[in-house]
């Protein structure tokens, strides 16, 4: 996929700093931030930093990735529920693949995620590592 730099930079607060939007009416946390609360349809939020620790809800090991990720295969991807209830999809790294289990505790870290397009722009974001 080819895209321009602003498409990447506009996601930096979420992907690099794990910033979410907390609904000022019902307290639900949206990640990434959005304009309307998915729970109560309120439209005012405050920016918050998400919890960096959470639990692995499910995962897979990708053996047949899209071309951009072909150098990384096989790699683990999972759905993590952070301790503030926010869920996200993330790679799980620095772990032997057979040690992954639903329910394992994880911590979010900052890493290179992909090299985009023919120019090879370095794109960063969060990944998870096991903590126990």
């Amino acid at each position: 996929m080819k895209s321009i730099v602003p498409r990447y930079t506009r996601e930096i607060p979420q992907r690099a700093r794990l910033e979410g939007a907390k609904c000022l009416k019902c307290g639900h946390i949206e990640f990434p931030p959005r304009l309307v609360c998915s729970k109560c349809r309120h439209r005012e939020f405050e920016t918050i930093s998400l919890q960096k620790t959470g639990t692995l809800l499910t995962y897979t090991i990708i053996y047949t990735p899209a071309e951009t990720f072909s150098m990384q295969s096989p790699f683990a991807v999972g759905i993590v529920e952070l301790d503030d209830g926010v869920r996200l999809t993330t790679q799980i790294v620095d772990v032997p693949l057979d040690e992954l289990k639903i329910g394992k505790r994880v911590e979010m870290i900052f890493r290179l995620v992909q090299k985009e397009g023919h120019a090879g722009i370095l794109e960063y974001g969060y990944k998870a590592v096991l903590t126990n």
Partner: peptide, 27 residues
């Protein structure tokens, strides 16, 4: 594999390397 993954969230699923089979694998 890339094209089918465009049916997922490009910025918050596919960006991190998950594929379309990968989503069903997690289910």
């Amino acid at each position: 594999t890339y094209i089918l993954a465009t049916a997922a969230d490009q910025e918050y699923e596919a960006y991190f390397g998950v594929t379309f089979p990968g989503l069903y694998a997690m289910i």
